[in-house]
Simulated scan of single mutants.
Amino acid sequence: MNLTETDTSLFQRLRFVLVETSHPGNIGAAARAIKTMGFGRLILVNPRFDDALSHPEAIAFASGALDVLESAQIVGSVEQAVSGCNFVAAVSARLREFSPPILDPRAFASRIAAPEEGEVALLFGSERYGLPNQIVMNCQVLINIPANPVYSSLNLAQAVQLLAYESRMAADVKQGGNSHIGFHGQLASTEQVEGMYAHLEQALVAIDFLDPDNPKKLMPRIKRLLSRTELETEEVNILRGISKKILDRLKK
């Protein structure tokens, strides 16, 4: 079965987010990369150039993908770019001590192929600095592309192309009849999960389990722990309910 960008599947749910991109040519090349794989949702977070979408280099490198370039969004924060997403993944060659679970591109694509996974965002950092630790830590997974350890540097558009390809292949398999076995609830959105973490942190402070003046790395560890579970909306509600009960009991 041939899939196109008009299918109501992963092709509609997956957004490619470029964070603080420095070179307009890479933006155009990224637009071309995702269109060749049937995708079309491109979001830019604070690109270096104000005319990033109309810059001559961006147009030249888009080479036939001007529709993707013209429909791309420019936003002022990563939070805006991933608003409404149920699953957010950071792409980075650099591993972090407190990163979320690490997946390779194929494992990531397989994981998000099912429609019940909801809205998905792929974050790519700037060409020079990559993604800040705080952004990576707030993602559900970190995608690390296996490459030559001696020279693992990939051009931004090349990384986008690779992830778009693997996502297309996973979508092809899903359309070919693979079924999802067992109950799977609706994944919680990024906003729901972040709200839950804030609520949980309040409760932990209230019972003196977390010292706000010396928090160490408790919350990053909890985030890493829970990010492995693919939190569903009902599960987030349960954890918020527990936090609320703790806070209510302490008020009595």
Rank of each mutant, 00 (worst) to 15 (best):
A52D: 02
F49I: 00
F49Q: 14
V17C: 06
T36N: 14
F49K: 11
N26V: 07
T8Y: 10
K35S: 14
Q12L: 12
V19N: 01
P24G: 06
T36M: 03
R48K: 14
D7S: 13
L44S: 01
S54P: 00
M37E: 07
V17M: 07
R13Y: 09
V19H: 07
T36D: 00
I43H: 03
G38L: 01
G28A: 06
E20C: 13
V45N: 06
L53T: 12
I34D: 08
F11E: 15
T21G: 02
L18A: 04
F49S: 09
R13I: 05
K35N: 08
T36C: 09
T21P: 13
L18C: 07
A52M: 12
F49G: 00
R13V: 07
R48L: 12
L14K: 03
L10W: 07
V17Q: 07
R15M: 05
S22G: 00
R41Y: 11
H23N: 03
P56L: 04
T6W: 04
A33T: 10
H55K: 03
K35Y: 05
M37R: 06
M37I: 01
G28L: 05
M37Q: 02
A33P: 11
R32N: 05
H55I: 08
G40S: 12
G28Q: 01
I43E: 00
G28I: 03
T8Q: 14
A30F: 05
L14F: 06
T8S: 15
F16R: 12
H23F: 14
L18Q: 06
T6I: 01
R48I: 00
L18H: 09
V45D: 06
N46A: 15
S9G: 15
R15N: 06
T8W: 12
K35W: 07
A29C: 04
G40N: 09
R15W: 04
L18I: 10
S9A: 15
L44K: 01
H55W: 08
F49W: 08
F16P: 13
R13H: 08
I34M: 12
F39S: 10
G40H: 13
L10Q: 10
A30V: 05
H55Q: 12
T6G: 00
G25R: 01
N46S: 15
H55L: 02
P24R: 04
R41Q: 15
R32S: 11
N26Y: 05
H55F: 11
D7P: 07
H23D: 09
I27P: 03
T36R: 01
A29M: 12
R41M: 02
V17G: 08
G40F: 10
A29I: 12
T6A: 05
K35D: 04
T36P: 08
P47N: 03
R48G: 00
E5G: 12
T6L: 02
H23K: 13
T8R: 15
T4Y: 06
